[in-house]
Design a protein around this nucleic acid. Structure first.
Lengths: 135, 135
DNA sequence: CTAAAAGTCCACCGAGTTGGTAGGGTAATC
DNA sequence: GATTACCCTACCAACTCGGTGGACTTTTAG
């Protein structure tokens, strides 16, 4: 399951994608409209900014906004950034790989199955952007 | 990601599947061969017994063993039991469904995408049993 | 030019869960 | 009586989900 943080991140990002090119949006506005705890959201947006997905402006008329076009922001990337691995096991993760203790990957049925699951998920997630999430 | 608990559960179950019909296997043997913390494994096996997947026998010659044939034990069921939902969001889970706050499921792009991911994963997991994990 | 207002930025705190370690006691079986 | 599952309690470290308080920066009003 995606963490609450990830779920909030997606709600905030789709909200900002919807308002792309309308200038900065207040944290408080996003929090209110999307029912996200304000202070928690603050941290999430800051993290997304540090990762280069968002940009912010301080002072009056400030707020957060997408740094790139919604069609350029990949869903899989956002998940990896906020939530971590997409794979169900460390030993089948592409970006967070860790070797399995006491388990030969060449002869591990679980390993093989989880690679299938990973690829099936990535097939979908890698080919979707924030733009696709808007209806 | 699957929890450590789930990973240990699968290691233990495949070990027991491999020794199916060889009589009870000691917790300590599984722990040693699969490098699982003994006390942690104790709890996991007990939980699997209570769920009807394993059976146990006390005293000398005792231990744990599969209650059903490995080909009758579904991978998806094991994951749901030990790890929880397979879906990435509560609002797209079949067995652990929870409605999304402030989000109309009929017009939520995230919702639709996550259903696709869920179905792709289930397509694989629902059609695999413990027997398939043995090589 | 200065001060207040508007916002982000940031450090820390607290409860709850996860993943352990350690110990011991009870009940069943050989 | 030895063996083994079963079932407590207590403790610890790390992480997640949230909240609090306040410092910092930019804009605007006077």
């Amino acid at each position: 399951m995606l963490s609450k943080k990830s779920q909030y991140a997606f709600k905030a990002l789709t909200y900002l994608a919807d308002k792309f090119d309308e200038g900065p949006v207040l944290i408080s506005e996003i929090a209110k409209k999307k029912r996200i705890p304000l202070k928690f959201l603050e941290n999430i947006l800051l993290e997304l900014k540090k990762a280069g997905i968002l940009e912010s402006k301080k002072g009056k008329g400030g707020g957060y906004f997408l740094k790139k076009d919604p069609s350029k922001i990949n869903v899989a990337d956002v998940i990896r950034l906020v939530n971590g691995p997409i794979a169900m096991l460390p030993c089948v993760s592409l970006y967070f790989y860790e070797r399995c203790k006491n388990c030969d990957e060449k002869s591990c049925g679980l390993h093989d199955m989880m690679i299938e699951v990973r690829d099936a998920s990535l097939q979908i997630l890698e080919n979707r952007t924030l733009k696709d999430l808007l209806v």
